[in-house]
Design a protein around this nucleic acid. Structure first.
Lengths: 268, 268
DNA sequence: ACTGGAGTCTCTCCCGGGGGGAGACTCCAC
DNA sequence: GTGGAGTCTCCCCCCGGGAGAGACTCCAGT
């Protein structure tokens, strides 16, 4: 039996942290003296403590650490760990994107922007629509696109798919998302419905390359809108002119961004 | 001039976050209506907001973001950013270490441990000693070793260097560190002083490979100590038998860990 | 048996970087 | 002039820890 101080020395976890892990039910001391409240750990708990330590170093939340420790099956445990390693990997990808677009932002000469103003007529499309939290956009998008493709079939590549992004998504972190594909006679199946996109006046530009860096382009388009004394009205529209379904060359991807505005007199 | 909502839409920063950035002095609105408190941003602030966004995605603390934005010289700015990228890289290294030792921990068959009990005589060494916070151990170690080498000269590789690690370092995150090199006549220069290491009874094992995974070995040694009903007494000792000064092959590194104990009757 | 010091307990407060929501005020178009 | 959208401030919550106060407990030495 080890008192908390000794256990701390052996595991390199601070006394405070050990107490917190006890409180969280993550690492219960083998014995707790009911009168004094002293915690006593057994030597067998050292490996467990170290696993927790490692997982925390990987920024695995305590709740997930608990799930991993509680799962009796080693295979299942390995799967949970692998899941987190995957999360780390996607974070790494995110970091890479941030670095590259930071470079782009700090570049002395900003890329000039091709902006066009266009009247978009009302159109009926096959769409999937949901209220989504900002963090889930990626997953939702993949699912919605898959469902659209499943319902419409892959043949209908006549016109590129697109999406509408409710502004609440950026302002409050959640909002309505709509993903659509043009279709002659939009069916109703699963989450797919016919939806009428209203006619709008759009300020349009295109974003080249990886989709993650797109908010830089959003910002440039926003600057343009401000300089031209316009006001944004309604959900942003994106159209995926060239995307993962078309090519594996990420740099060739091309996304059109359309911002609805009020009363456009003339384009520049 | 953009109200906060519009600015949020353009920059993809949430309204709340923009308010916080204002409060933190990071991104002051161009105009704040003194009567209503309404914030109004100019289009020129969009790039700044996006730079902040990117830096935050790289987990740069707000205080450092501010320093980066405030530094007028682009070169200096680039240097600050590069500094953070380096931090990211070292974090990545830390992650890799955690992953590998997690694998080691979850391995079904733990490596058997060679443990030895040894009486260490009193010895006088050339040492650097300081109170150090846990996070600074790496930097302190590098500095102290460099100073020892500078004072003693590289020739004195007769016996490997070593260190004493106060237990408070693990229990409370800070404590006394001592790094030494054996020397016939320890000089007094800079931070280097002659220090007498007291005689102790040591439970000793060795750790192969990268130093970062060493706490797993600490744990194994701790288990051994517990199983053999011993009590830890005093600061842990490490000796760097093979280290970065000897070889670039990290897997060949070899660190001896010695834990002082009370009253050892027999070894196992 | 007593005592002192080290060890441990619980408690509250703090940090950073956000999110949630209440309740009041303001802006603007009709 | 009015309603609804937009915005304000204020307070509480989240995580995973760290800091410190004040009281209690353990244990070795006398």
């Amino acid at each position: 039996m080890l008192a908390i101080g000794e256990f701390s020395r052996v595991t390199h976890l601070s006394i405070r942290t050990l107490r917190r892990y006890h409180e969280a039910g993550l690492l219960e001391p083998e014995v707790v003296d009911p009168s004094s409240g002293y915690r006593y750990y057994s030597g067998d708990q050292i490996p467990t403590a170290q696993v927790i330590h490692r997982l925390r170093e990987l920024d695995v939340p305590l709740s997930d650490v608990e799930r991993i420790l509680r799962s009796p099956d080693p295979d299942q445990r390995a799967a949970l760990v692998a899941e987190h390693l995957q999360r780390l990997e996607s974070e790494l990808a995110r970091t890479r994107v941030a670095v590259s677009s930071l470079r782009r932002l700090l570049a002395p000469e900003p890329t000039p922007l091709q902006v066009e103003v266009r009247s978009e007529p009302e159109v009926v499309v096959a769409a999937v629509e949901d209220d989504v939290v900002a963090d889930d956009v990626g997953a939702w998008f993949a699912g919605a696109m898959a469902e659209l493709d499943a319902v419409l079939g892959p043949a209908a590549a006549l016109a590129p798919p697109g999406g509408l992004y409710d502004n609440g998504l950026y302002e409050h972190g959640r909002g309505r998302l709509l993903l659509y594909r043009p279709a002659a006679e939009p069916p109703t199946r699963g989450r797919v419905r016919p939806v009428t996109l209203p006619a709008v006046e759009l300020v349009v530009t295109t974003h080249q390359g990886e989709h993650d860096g797109i908010d830089v382009t959003y910002g440039q388009l926003g600057s343009w809108v401000v300089r031209n004394a316009l006001t944004v009205a309604g959900a942003v529209r994106e159209r995926y002119l060239v995307g993962p379904r078309d090519t594996d060359d990420i740099t060739a991807w091309c996304t059109e961004i359309g911002w609805p505005v009020f009363r456009v007199a003339a384009s520049s």
